[in-house]
Amino acid sequence: MQFSRLGSSTLDVSRVCLGSMTWGLQNNQHDADEQINFALSHGVNFIDTAELYAIPPSANTYGKTESIIGNWLARHREKREQLILATKISGSGVSWIREGAPITGQAILQAVDDSLQRLNTDYIDLYQLHWPNRTSPHFAKHWPGMVTFSDVNRDQEVAAMLDILQALHACIEQGKIRNWGLSDDTTWGINTYLRLSSQHNLAKPVAIQNEFNLLHTKDWPYLIENCVHEDIAFLPWSPLAAGSLTGKYLNGARPEGSRWTHMQRNGLFRDTLQANQAIEAYTKLAQQFGITPAQLALAWVNQVDGVTSTIIGATSMSQLKENIQAFDLNLTGEQIKAVHEVLHHFPSPY
């Protein structure tokens, strides 16, 4: 397993980050224990979760994933220091979490304590803002005109960000979190927090996790360039585009128990004609390379300059093993060229 520094922090994280959002709905405690133990035995030291999880989110599954990880930690206290544990505070719009209110400094203070209790730990290595209070161009809102940036009151937004930043800094000083980061944010979000951190001598963000995969490369080059030069770890989530890059949903297939058989908050916006055509092309390339479509997609993300650690998820041990094996692959120049020919033909299929 290879490792990378987590932005400007002092932490080294495995190039594979074990995602956990299915634990508590599609996967139970036994499944999660098995996945964690296997991942650790193969050098993975990075686990990502969120108070919102399991996914798809509901009032019944809120906090369950953190509790499952906490149950594992309660039985493996000796392994806590080996882990880099990341979690997130939910943003506005989820009615059963703080009545759907936006993130505030006070909300962070309470949410951190709640996550620490569920996780059965004294500290969180990376605490992330799941999404910003303002509407950001993510989750199928990245097309021109879908977000009106000029509607945002900049001064109010910046004041709220400072309040958030002060609370995060307080949690760091108290030893409850070691570092903090962003999720589903933009270059403006990164740079505003960096500026506020500098102006007020507060802890700066060390990471951002956004969706990034062969079907969704909008963070290249601008946001990733920003991350490289500002020492912000870039952590792609959904490197398999919600499982679609495995090819299992082609031609309308819906395997029993798969993620797309569950209701999705934002619908199946990744299921487009162009996306399916791209997936077919990538599937054929994977067959030519002698690897699986999932491994092709993961190996490609891993070789992108600026990527720190890729967040993978699996509902079965066979999927997890296949996915982790992908990070031992080194795509050749000719293979990358072939992949990019497809990417150029389908640059933004959803």
Score class of each variant (00 low, 15 high):
152 V>P: 00
255 P>Y: 04
142 H>E: 12
297 A>N: 02
315 T>S: 15
271 D>C: 11
163 D>M: 07
139 F>M: 14
15 R>N: 10
105 G>Q: 03
321 K>F: 08
120 N>K: 11
159 A>S: 14
148 T>S: 13
128 Q>E: 11
140 A>V: 04
193 Y>W: 11
142 H>R: 10
54 A>Q: 04
146 M>G: 08
51 E>K: 06
247 G>F: 03
28 N>D: 15
123 Y>Q: 10
121 T>S: 11
205 P>I: 05
205 P>L: 06
205 P>T: 04
132 P>T: 10
280 E>S: 15
65 T>C: 05
153 N>S: 14
302 N>E: 14
32 A>R: 08
37 N>K: 10
51 E>D: 15
289 F>W: 09
273 L>I: 12
238 S>Q: 10
126 L>N: 10
334 E>A: 15
114 D>L: 10
6 L>E: 08
156 Q>T: 13
14 S>D: 04
283 T>C: 15
309 S>C: 05
312 I>K: 02
284 K>M: 11
45 N>E: 02
2 Q>A: 12
190 I>A: 05
48 D>I: 05
306 G>K: 05
172 I>W: 13
81 E>A: 13
169 H>T: 11
224 I>P: 00
284 K>E: 15
94 V>S: 03
25 L>T: 02
289 F>M: 08
102 P>R: 03
268 L>C: 02
326 A>H: 03
336 I>P: 00
230 E>T: 15
129 L>E: 00
44 V>Q: 06
325 Q>L: 12
106 Q>Y: 14
187 T>M: 11
321 K>V: 14
107 A>Q: 01
237 W>R: 08
42 H>F: 01
61 T>D: 08
104 T>N: 03
